[in-house]
Design a protein around this nucleic acid. Structure first.
Length: 216
DNA sequence: AAGACACACAACCGCTCTCTC
DNA sequence: CGAGAGAGCGGTTGTGTGTCT
């Protein structure tokens, strides 16, 4: 039997939020801040779990949310960051002011994935589809938490990362272990950006496709 | 006009991480 | 140091709406 959620156990409301609920949550946070999320629903007079309130606030009610369609620049940045760090939606969203991880994730799954496939690029690997399907080691983001395949020169990886970080207002969260003087985490020193397929020529090809020449 | 289908987005679920005791 | 609670994250599902037949 499937494990039931906290909302189910506590017989709390689920599903779409009503305007009244939104108002209660907004008023409460405007007056007191969210503090401990688990106590928010009780204090705000909502029959929701704290988790649900947090999600609603972060993804929909926050006043600094941009909303609306993604610009070409945002789209390019998402694609580029995804090629570097993979499905780290919260970190990607952190580079896009006013956007949430959920929004970025949905945009990726519903739009960018399809667009890349139409262009013959595997959205998981950012490589040509034919190559991605024939190479079992091809499906790797640059900085996956698990393992990295060092087949490209470290110099290119460092150069790209340093340029990216220079371009971004907010630095990415590097893994535990510290960052060396060149801006690359110590644990990634000498690692590559892509495996054997993504060398200079391919990088140019990728940029041409996505209009990202300014990044590399 | 109505049913089928596709798409976009909101919300939930389950897991991991972090902090506190 | 281990247990428990809370917060955060990524994957998945559900729902509303637009489009096509």
């Amino acid at each position: 039997m499937a494990k039931q959620s906290c909302c189910y156990k506590k017989r709390l409301r689920r599903g779409l939020w009503s305007p009244e609920e939104d108002e209660k949550l907004m008023n409460h946070i405007a007056m007191y801040g969210h503090g401990c999320w688990s106590s928010v629903p009780k204090l705000a007079g909502l029959e929701r779990c704290g988790k649900s309130c947090r999600l609603r606030w972060i993804n929909y009610l926050r006043p600094d949310l941009k909303r609306g369609t993604f610009s070409q620049e945002e789209e390019d940045l998402i694609i580029h960051l995804h090629s570097m760090i993979g499905n780290k939606w919260s970190q990607i969203a952190a580079q896009l002011p006013g956007r949430t991880d959920n929004e970025v994730k949905n945009f990726w799954n519903s739009y960018i994935k399809k667009k890349l496939r139409e262009r013959g690029i595997d959205p998981a690997t950012h490589k040509p589809l034919a190559e991605a399907t024939t190479s079992p080691t091809a499906c790797r983001p640059v900085f996956s938490d698990a393992e990295l395949v060092p087949t490209m020169t470290a110099a290119l990886a460092q150069d790209q990362v340093v340029k990216m970080l220079d371009s971004l207002k907010m630095p990415l969260d590097w893994p535990v272990g510290g960052v060396a003087g060149n801006g690359v985490p110590e644990s990634y020193q000498g690692q590559c950006v892509y495996d054997s397929g993504m060398v200079d020529d391919d990088a140019v090809q990728f940029d041409d496709v996505h209009g990202l020449s300014n990044w590399c």
